[in-house]
Amino acid sequence: MTAHTSPASSARRGRRPGTSTTRQAVLDAARARFAADGFTATTIRRVATDAGVDASLVMQFFRSKNELFAAVMSVPPEALTRFSAAFEGTDDRLGERVVRAFIEIWEGDARSSEPLMAMLRGAIANDQANEQLRDFLQERLLVDAIASRSVDNATLRAGIVSSMLVGLMVGRGVVGVPTLTGADRETLVSLVGPAVQSVLVPPPAGDEGNAG
């Protein structure tokens, strides 16, 4: 009598054709899972289930959850380019351009948004994610916005803007504060943009506090 093997169990035990294709499927599943659940709640077994492979196969590609997470946190170059483009042009309405670009790359296509959201959720419990997120934000701001301008306390200004932008995304994408999740992007841009503008583009010396 021939042993019966269900299609599901065959797919479960079998290896997908092509190592690179299988590895990418695991990465895609892990990226979505880390973005949705965070580092602590994500398990190798859950990722394997999402990818339709055995957990042992995931471990062959990535020796630990930390290594898998590190591979997931690769922000696509186009996301960096899009963020950098916000700083091109004059200082007029720079804050609004930065906030708009930031929200768009965090809430746009999954390839850009999921690594960033994985960083954000993982930063709470994973030092590597914390460092990666900090470097991504602060270096982008320092290189693209502040280093090209003559301002005092450049590093501090980059840190302040980073905190403002991350706080916005924590409230909107992680905590789910109703007033933030219910607001459309342009409303947020119009409200947060001027605050970011005031940090990135300080008024000329002697103009602070002038009431006219």
Rank of each mutant, 00 (worst) to 15 (best):
L142R: 03
S20E: 15
P7Q: 08
L68H: 02
S113D: 05
R97V: 01
L94W: 07
R12I: 12
T49L: 14
D127A: 11
E131I: 14
R33Q: 15
L27D: 08
S113I: 00
Q132F: 15
S112F: 10
T22A: 09
S84R: 07
F39G: 09
F69R: 03
R82E: 08
A71L: 04
A118G: 09
V98F: 01
D127N: 05
D50A: 11
E88Q: 02
G18Y: 07
L137F: 05
I105L: 10
L80A: 00
A41G: 09
G18K: 06
E67L: 12
A48E: 10
Q60S: 04
A30D: 01
A79G: 02
A70H: 03
V98Q: 00
A29L: 07
N126D: 04
D127Q: 12
K65D: 05
A29Y: 08
L57C: 15
A70M: 07
A123D: 09
V75Y: 07
R33P: 13
G95I: 15
S56Y: 02
P115N: 00
M73G: 00
V75D: 05
H4C: 09
S113H: 03
E78Y: 13
R97Y: 02
A32R: 14
R100E: 12
V58C: 14
P77D: 04
E67M: 13
A8N: 12
S9I: 12
A35N: 09
V58F: 13
G52I: 01
R13Y: 07
D127K: 05
L137Q: 13
I105Y: 11
A123F: 02
G89T: 12
Q60G: 00
E107H: 00
D92A: 08
T81W: 10
T21G: 05
V72R: 04
D135K: 05
T5M: 13
M73I: 03
R16A: 10
F136K: 06
S9E: 11
A85H: 02
T90L: 03
Q138E: 15
E88G: 02
R16E: 06
S113Y: 04
F61V: 07
I105G: 10
R16G: 10
E78V: 14
A86H: 04
E104S: 14
D109F: 08
T43I: 11
G95N: 04
T21P: 04
R134T: 15
A118P: 07
S20Y: 15
A123H: 06
F61E: 12
Q138H: 15
E78I: 14
N126R: 01
R63F: 01
P7V: 03
F62N: 03
M59F: 13
T49N: 10
E139D: 13
L57E: 14
R31Q: 12
I124M: 00
F39A: 11
E114D: 06
S64A: 03
L120I: 14
V98H: 02
F39E: 12
V58L: 09
V99L: 01
I124S: 00
S84G: 11
E96T: 02
V75R: 04
F61Q: 10
F61P: 11
S9Y: 13
V53D: 13
D37C: 09
A71I: 09
L94T: 00
A11C: 08
T42G: 06
N66L: 10
V58R: 15
S64P: 08
R100G: 10
L68S: 04
L94P: 06
E67T: 05
